[in-house]
Design a protein around this nucleic acid. Structure first.
Length: 551
RNA sequence: GCGCCCGUAGCUCAGCUGGAUAGAGCGCCGGACUACGAAUCCGUAGGCCGCAGGUUCGAAUCCUGCCGGGCGCACCA
């Protein structure tokens, strides 16, 4: 980050002096291959046409100016079609370690978001049953995204939307009521589309235990309502607990029913009508979403007078923006992708830019055990719950797997593989790097070398290629976070951590720290290791994964 | 039929706001503990980046058309 900023600034200055404009598409980034230096820039190729010169000639000019611009720049080479390959001197890189230690757990943070207010809404599963593994993926993603955004200068709030107003809730009540009557030995009819899981019977039993056997004699409308409310609350409590055990806590739990009851839905519908975005036809109220890129208009109020889910969802998003969010991020299961165009249309109809809503679609999780697929369906009551999976493999391992893939690719989650403490689950690889450093530090203290003492070490003793690799990687961390935030892609962070851990393990194998011989060198290396440990901690914290002192 | 996502090494996947010989882990094969934790490290082999066109000085990356897989196309949520 320091290096990139430094070079970019220098180049912008030089380009300006030459009377040329800095193109937004110009890039300054680490090249694929280390032999091309620390940073490569394509500016000469971008500007060649405007300047009326050959890319390589232009690059040569810039090269000369760049060398004069800063003593930190050790070398500049013109390569290939006109790349500028820039290398910084060791002293420049050594400052990375000092900076990390100085900033501690704040290292990596930036103000890239400039205080924009962002809401991340995720999981939001209907409270009709326990969370399954697919919800876990959304939970990990949303939670991690919120952590990353908070570290990069956004003001973030997390939220869970409870669909407590619709048909599914009635169905839940009916399912429980039927089971309750069954247990009480009364005639009952289980609803055709009802929820068949065993937890429904447990809920029925709980209600009977708490309310007494006479509950089964209630008139059915009262019984249904009791079961609906009790069932929903019990399931919500379970969901909250499961999320908590997974390291996920939403700040706001927002009720759909509250929107309906307070007349917010009606108000939003009225405002759509006022804007000419809604019209009546066939006894129903329609949203004119075709005006805004949807392929057909959508019903808001059914001819029966009932609200559709879309109506309350539009009102919900209206409410979000009224709460002052600049950007709303919704994390949905990929099976809802068809819903995106109408929601984007809705946001526009509400008078916002459609870019003020970002929908992240999370592909389904393919749950396996030893290569064999495990079937999942909430309705049929056959599934492996999130709680079961977390219990079996641990929250850290599960989270890391979820966060190691971009969200729009399918994910194979093999319980047996995830449990293995090998590179099949890189979480252990990264955590081990941290634990290893901790172990060295413990040994150092046993030998009477304190960490505080090491902080005054002479960093110029760090001069091997492996030292430089670690220093350079640490310098990249703030930018990794910023770019993960910008592209809403937490997996960038887990890939980065794997790379840093790899460099650390390599360093560890090649260079003795405590056995370095020279006292000064021992301290310098201890300091380097503490800086690496700090970055590992900061990165893992951004993922919501622990950084253990020993394993 | 229309729409969205995916198709990169034997397997699981990065890379996709175009850039220099396409990367990682696992697996295979071969090495490294009388040194701070071998949950580690080092090395070898392995690729018409689904196919065909197009744009460009330059395409895994952008555009078009096919092929294959997944998911959607309700006055359900």
């Amino acid at each position: 980050m320091r290096a990139k900023n430094h070079l970019e600034q220098a180049l912008v200055g030089i380009v300006g002096e030459m009377g040329l404009e800095w193109p937004t598409k110009a890039t300054v980034e680490p090249p694929k291959d280390k032999k091309f230096g620390d940073l490569a820039c394509n500016i000469a190729m971008m500007l060649a046409k405007d300047a009326g010169r050959k890319p390589r000639d232009l690059a040569e000019d810039i090269r000369q100016k760049l060398l004069k611009a800063s003593p930190d720049i050790a070398s500049v080479e013109v390569a290939g079609p006109g790349f500028l390959n820039v290398a910084y001197g060791p002293d420049f890189w050594r400052k990375s370690a000092a900076l990390v230690l100085e900033q501690g757990e704040n290292y990596g943070k930036s103000d890239a978001g400039q205080g924009r207010r962002v809401q991340v809404e995720y999981v939001s599963a209907n409270p009709t049953g326990p969370l399954h593994i697919g919800h876990g993926r959304g939970a990990a993603l949303g939670d991690c995204l919120a952590r990353i955004l908070a570290r990069t200068g956004f003001e973030v709030q997390t939220e869970y939307y409870i669909n407590d107003a619709g048909r599914q809730m009635k169905l839940l009540g009916a399912s429980i009521w039927a089971r309750l009557l069954e247990i009480a030995g009364k005639p009952s009819q289980f609803p055709e589309d009802g929820y068949k899981g065993n937890y429904i019977k447990d809920l029925a039993q709980d209600i009977l235990d708490n309310e007494g056997p006479q509950t089964a004699d209630l008139p059915s409308d009262q019984g249904l309502e009791l079961c609906r409310v009790r069932g929903m609350n019990a399931i919500l409590d379970g969901i909250k607990q499961d999320l908590k055990d997974f390291g996920v806590e939403h700040e706001i739990w927002f009720s759909e029913a509250s929107l309906v009851e307070t007349g917010k839905v009606q108000a939003t519908l009225d405002s759509l009508k006022t804007r000419g975005m809604a019209y009546e036809k066939d006894g129903a109220l329609w949203f004119k979403s075709t005006d805004l890129g949807d392929d057909k208009d959508r019903v808001l109020v059914k001819s029966s007078g009932d609200l559709t889910y879309l109506a309350s969802d539009i009102a919900y998003h209206d409410n979000k923006y009224q709460r002052g969010f600049d950007l709303v991020v919704d994390i949905w299961g990929a099976d809802h992708h068809g819903y995106v165009p109408r929601m984007k249309a809705a946001v526009e109809a509400l008078g916002r830019s459609r870019d003020d809503l970002e929908v992240i679609l999370v592909q389904l999780v393919n749950l396996l055990r030893g290569g064999e697929q495990i079937a999942m369906s909430t309705r049929a009551g056959k599934f492996e719950t999130l709680a079961d999976v977390v219990k079996e493999v641990g929250a850290d391992a599960a989270r890391f797997i979820f966060l190691s893939r971009k969200s729009d690719s399918h994910l194979d989650f093999d319980l047996e593989l995830v449990k293995q403490k090998s590179m099949d689950n890189p979480v252990y690889y990264v955590q081990y790097a941290h634990a290893r450093i901790r172990s060295v530090q413990r040994k150092a203290e046993e030998q009477g070398i304190s960490l505080d003492e090491a902080k005054s070490a002479d960093l110029s003793l760090l001069d091997t290629p492996e030292d430089m690799d670690l220093l350079k990687l640490m310098d990249q961390f703030p930018e990794v976070l910023a770019s993960a935030a910008k592209s809403l892609s937490p997996h960038l962070v887990s890939y980065y951590l794997r790379e840093l851990a790899q460099a650390l393990h390599g360093y560890y194998t090649k260079h003795q720290v405590l056995g370095a011989g020279d006292d000064g060198l021992v301290r310098a290396r201890l300091l380097l290791l503490e800086a690496v440990a700090q970055v590992l901690r900061n990165g893992l914290a951004a993922l919501g994964v622990s950084a253990p002192d020993s394993m």
